[in-house]
Amino acid sequence: MTEKVIALDIGNVCIGIHPERCFGALGFRSLADIPREVLFLAGERFERGEISEAEFLDGFRRLTGSALSDAELRRAFCAIIGEPVPGMAELVSGLAGRGYRPVFFSDTSVTHMEELRRKFPAASAVPDGIYSYRVHAKKPELPMFEAFEARFGVPAFYFDDRAELIEGARKHGWNAHRFVSAEEVDKILG
């Protein structure tokens, strides 16, 4: 049996994402309270791998005047990574037995990837991935698709929770599906 590759987004597909946990731990009441420069630093520069974790933490301190230690800032940043999406750890763990090879395809930072590997019980079933911090691009930018296809070919399926990323993948010729639940993924895979 030939393995079919499945491209899996991480956030809100495999594991819950809770930015409000980070904001609260850093003393902000909401996303609106966080300086735009901090959001750009985390969501663009750090997730694109343009800066190291140390540079991100130093930049955060400089932009907010925070006195938190590196460990405290890292812990707050990692609080964004929640618990596994119901049913996904079990589904992902069983994919190889069904002839599928799951591969992560995600906009993420090295720090969040480490936290995902710690918190997602099926992480060992997905040893490979294409990540924005390694490609220096984010979905749906062409370099992300090119990097995936260069290593794994066009996936048989791609699951993501964001409609604009599904649309981008479909324009690129991928069989992309908006993630709803583990049960829905199971039905699509047959």
Score class of each variant (00 low, 15 high):
D58E: 12
D70S: 11
S93F: 00
R98F: 06
S66T: 06
G59F: 05
A96V: 00
R101M: 07
G65I: 06
R74L: 14
G97M: 11
P86G: 08
E90F: 03
G87D: 10
G65W: 02
L73F: 01
G97K: 13
I80T: 13
D70A: 14
V85W: 02
S93Q: 13
G65A: 06
A67N: 15
R62L: 13
F60S: 09
T64K: 05
G97D: 06
G99I: 12
G99K: 11
S66C: 10
M88A: 10
L57S: 01
M88S: 13
L91T: 01
R74C: 13
A96M: 02
G82D: 02
E90R: 13
E72T: 01
E90I: 02
F60H: 15
A96W: 11
G94M: 01
R75A: 15
A76P: 05
A89Q: 04
V85G: 02
R61H: 08
F77N: 05
M88F: 07
G94S: 04
A76T: 01
G59R: 07
A76W: 04
L57Q: 07
G65Y: 02
M88C: 14
L95H: 03
A79I: 00
P102K: 12
L57V: 14
A89G: 06
G65H: 04
T64N: 07
L63A: 12
E83F: 00
L91K: 09
R61F: 08
I80E: 11
E72L: 07
F56I: 03
A89H: 12
D58T: 00
G59N: 06
A67Q: 15
A79Q: 05
E72Q: 15
R74G: 08
P86T: 10
L68V: 03
V85L: 05
L73G: 00
L95R: 05
L57R: 14
S93R: 13
F77S: 01
R98Y: 10
G87L: 12
R75S: 13
D58Y: 00
A76H: 09
P102R: 14
A76I: 05
I80A: 12
A71W: 01
G82N: 04
L95C: 01
V92S: 08
G99P: 08
S93K: 11
G82W: 08
S66L: 04
V85A: 03
F56C: 15
A71V: 05
E83K: 09
R98E: 11
R101V: 03
L57A: 11
Y100N: 09
D58R: 11
A67I: 10
S93Y: 01
S93D: 11
G65M: 04
L57C: 11
E90Y: 01
A89L: 04
M88I: 09
F56Q: 14
A79S: 15
G99N: 07
I80L: 14
S66Y: 08
G97C: 11
C78W: 03
P102Q: 10
Y100T: 09
V85Y: 02
V85H: 02
L73W: 00
R61Q: 09
L68I: 01
S66E: 11
L95F: 07
